[in-house]
Nucleic acid binder design. Structure first.
Lengths: 222, 222
DNA sequence: TAGTGGTCTAGACCACGCC
DNA sequence: GCGTGGTCTAGACCACTAT
């Protein structure tokens, strides 16, 4: 059913931009229940191949957007998934105010108490990723009392601080003095950065910048 | 219904790792049909909050993976979405064999004919992205006859070469001599790279490396 | 083998939004 | 207004897999 619909789209039986028959018609044609057609079309809409509007009907997408689902792994699992031994080291931990350049990305009020943590993550004792994190203690009070020798800030938060929304940004930086030393690389080495901010409703939970070691690639299939 | 299930997960009525009641039980408790429960739980599973296995039941995910849906825009739309004027320039177009370093990423047989295209994409006449593309003419014969003055290789392919699967990679590079000149930046400038390979079944369609200008950030919400 | 989720049917009511 | 998709019900059979 869903496969036949897919075939008609891919083999251009229905062209991009075309309106396709309504659910009731398709159900009759395929000799199945409308619920089944609805499910199939809803799935196709979710993957972006068709767009649906009440009363206007279902259309084959003109530019099927390249949608890809990124699964951001827990660092430990990412490292262990490569067959390496994971370890981590907490470099710094103190209360700080939010640096001005993060005001837009992490909208905590000035009065909020923030815990800043700096962690290096290792794969087989070689630095793999450098993490700088601001966590909103107003949102997660018990975070302050956690010792991060057994569990990482990331894992603790994932398991204890539910979020409802978030924001991901990827970009590129030079290593700079400090990270060059950490990764034993040149200061000009290009590094891959992922920034994540999570919210519970409107409440900012945590903002983290993860700067990966030289040569890191983020991959996904679609 | 789905919201109540979400609440129980977020507010730790059900803890991570817990097994939650079966669909039949929940349907009875909520006084609704099992289909409805199934739909809600299926959605939660898709977003990664619960994991489901036949006979084993449904469990609250221990480490709810950060899943994010990346929508890779058409370049023209990305540029115009920023309020800039889009233009492009085809720098190069010839038949080439696949460079060795791409053999793994783009598995065409040596005999296959490839068209190589090099395009610069501009926003308000300033270089925005540099695109290097290998396209498998065995898979898309008519690609060879297209003039890319009105439509970009990317847009033509999206509209005319259906794909069923693909592969996305993100990483970071230094500009190097050539791109430094293009972007009027230093050679050490870190640039953001996105590589995409698409397939129709097992048939490789196209491989493209997109190197964005300095300061580019890829963003998504979840 | 038995219990669980996966999927289907046939029918219904409703909300949205073109016309 | 009315046609469309969105969602629900009550019931059924099936596929997988833990035990």
């Amino acid at each position: 059913m869903r496969e036949e619909l897919l075939r008609r789209i891919n083999e251009r039986v229905w062209h991009p931009g075309d309106i396709i028959p309504g659910e009731a018609d398709l159900a009759e044609e395929f000799g199945c229940a409308r619920t089944t057609v609805n499910r199939a079309l809803r799935d196709l809409a979710e993957s972006g191949l068709v767009t649906r509007r009440r009363k206007a009907g279902t259309r084959v997408a003109i530019n099927p957007p390249h949608k890809a689902t990124l699964t951001i792994p827990i660092i430990r699992e990412e490292v262990e998934g490569r067959g390496s031994i994971y370890s981590q080291s907490l470099l710094k931990r103190d209360k700080q105010t939010l640096p001005p350049h993060l005001h837009a990305a992490f909208p905590v009020s000035a009065a909020d108490r923030l815990l800043y943590t700096e962690t290096v993550h290792f794969a087989d004792d070689r630095p793999f990723m450098f993490e700088e994190r601001y966590t909103n203690l107003e949102a997660v009070p018990s975070f302050e009392a956690i010792a991060f020798d057994l569990i990482t800030p990331n894992e603790w938060l994932v398991q204890n601080a539910p979020y409802t929304a978030g924001d991901l940004t990827f970009y590129s930086v030079n290593a700079g003095q400090r990270l060059a030393r950490l990764y034993e690389a040149l200061e000009e080495t290009p590094l891959f950065v992922m920034e994540r901010t999570t919210f519970n409703g409107d409440l900012p939970i945590t903002h983290v910048r993860m700067t990966y070691g030289p040569g890191y690639r983020l991959r996904t299939r679609f």
